[in-house]
Nucleic acid binder design. Structure first.
Length: 250
DNA sequence: CAACGGACCTGCCTGC
DNA sequence: TGCAGGCAGGTCCGTT
């Protein structure tokens, strides 16, 4: 479920609470995530302070100087900052414990997410090196989509969900942006016109930034017992529809 | 290289 | 009520 807006909301939620905090303990209760959690993660992190928390695609990067803790929420993951004595729930797989008696707790029922260590320079890591541009960054626009799509016969929906083309557009927002742009999701990517790609790129930006704005309203819940409800759902026009509408009623 | 299917995993929903 | 089965859904990887 976490798409880019949820990941960014998570990043913004945890960053103020863990930046400049020093790791004093690492507790791995379940290392079997998408990839195994490194068994020397404690040695790598203990005694180090988090200098900043950034994001690339759907990865959250906690910088500790010598390298980065790379976190992905998969489909069902979440990260919260909690007092260390907060009772455990099922699937609370990892705690990064800080000097201030708070911990960053990674929870992920389906274990599709990951916690990895990457050496600097971080962006040369295989998982990050071949990523497409950030949809909300300056390198992404309709021309980029248009040029990358030439000759491609697969559905445009798959195309915009391909992280090598643009990162962070998952199923829900792909549907939403295509709907707003009046483009059928099953249309061959290479057969969509340049003007439509311009409209699509703008709608991707619009949908993602609006969702991040909505996520921002729940930020106060990232510490303590609350969760992040995700108010954006109520705005979605297309996600729950089974088929492309005969007529669009906007 | 592009396209596609498989794999990973659990919670939730449906139908018997 | 219970259980089996299907589905969701990000992303890497292997195969065509």
């Amino acid at each position: 479920m976490p798409e880019l807006p949820e990941v960014e909301t998570t990043r913004r939620g945890i960053a103020p609470h863990i930046t400049n905090q020093t790791v004093k303990q690492v507790i791995v209760r379940e290392p079997r995530l998408r990839w195994p959690v490194p068994d020397n993660l404690d040695a790598l992190l203990i005694g180090q302070a988090i200098s900043e928390v950034t994001r690339r695609g759907k990865y959250i990067l906690a910088d500790v100087g010598s390298g980065c803790l790379l976190m992905h929420l998969g489909m069902s993951g979440n990260l919260r900052v909690l007092p260390i004595d907060t009772p455990l729930k099922k699937h609370d797989h990892v705690d990064i414990v800080f000097d201030n008696e708070q911990c960053l707790r990674y929870h992920d029922p389906r274990r599709f997410g990951s916690l990895l260590w990457v050496e600097k320079p971080v962006l040369t890591h295989p998982l990050l090196a071949k990523m497409g541009p950030e949809p909300l960054g300056g390198d992404f626009d309709g021309d980029h989509l248009y040029q990358q799509s030439r000759g491609r016969t697969g559905p445009i929906k798959n195309f915009i969900m391909d992280g090598h083309i643009v990162v962070g557009v998952g199923n829900i927002y792909a549907n939403e942006a295509l709907f707003l742009s009046g483009i059928r999701p099953d249309r061959a990517a290479g057969r969509v016109s340049r003007p439509r790609y311009h409209r699509l790129a703008e709608n991707i930006k619009k949908v993602l930034s609006e969702a991040i704005k909505q996520g921002g309203t729940t930020l106060r819940d990232f510490t303590g017992a609350g969760g992040a409800p995700g108010y954006f759902k109520q705005y979605l026009r297309s996600y729950t529809r089974k088929s492309w509408p005969q007529r669009m009623c906007l």
